[in-house]
Design a protein around this nucleic acid. Sequence first.
DNA 1: TGATGATCATTG
DNA 2: CAATGATCATCA
Length: 228
Amino acid sequence: MSIPLPALQPPQDEHALLFRAQSLAGYTLGELAERASLAIPPDLKREKGWVGMLLEVYLGASAGSKPEQDFPEIGVELKTIPVDNTGKPLETTFVCVAPLTGNSGVTWQSSHVKHKLTRVLWIPVEGERQIPLSVRRVGTPLLWSPSVEENEQLRQDWEELMDLIVLGKVESITARHGEVLQLRPKAANNKARTEAIGEKGQPIMTLPRGFYLKKSFTRQLLARHFLL
DNA sequence: TGATGATCATTG
DNA sequence: CAATGATCATCA
């Protein structure tokens, strides 16, 4: 078994993508980084997206910042997820930035959250900080779509949060709102500002927010695949 | 010790 | 500034 090569082209279909992801399972981040000629940071304090970018290289995802899925041709979003030694998520999962204005007419069905989560390739990666980055191993990938129940949970939380945003109550929302989907800051620092709707319906400038999946939700969807 | 709120790098 | 990739680090 030799270390896979970075992909030169995006995969042509889901199966090709999954096959390629499966070929990465068991390798360490150090092995993959070396083969891709990428420098390994000492830790992730200053390069929090490094693991995700590394796997994008191997899977042929189009790089750069696009508000699109990672594999638009085949409608799949890639998410790496840090897990502990039992496979449980160590962090919440960022989904997308929350639109705080211009939401008239937006429904769950037409939302960015729904779109991004329609089809996701989850790749668990050892994430415990005691393990040096270079020897953390890539896990078995999971190609997932929300079950009926999961979709319903997501829709309910999304609608509750969007209602508050549209009604000018964004600044009263905390991460405790929502059962599986939560709204949290998503910014360079707490001085960042973006436009939103105020209490009286007037424009205000507030901290940018993003939608995140809670750990309990991702833990169960991983379990649904690996234990059942 | 876990979750919330804060933060980091990079690109256009 | 906003989008991508997320994890950090403080506090209850």
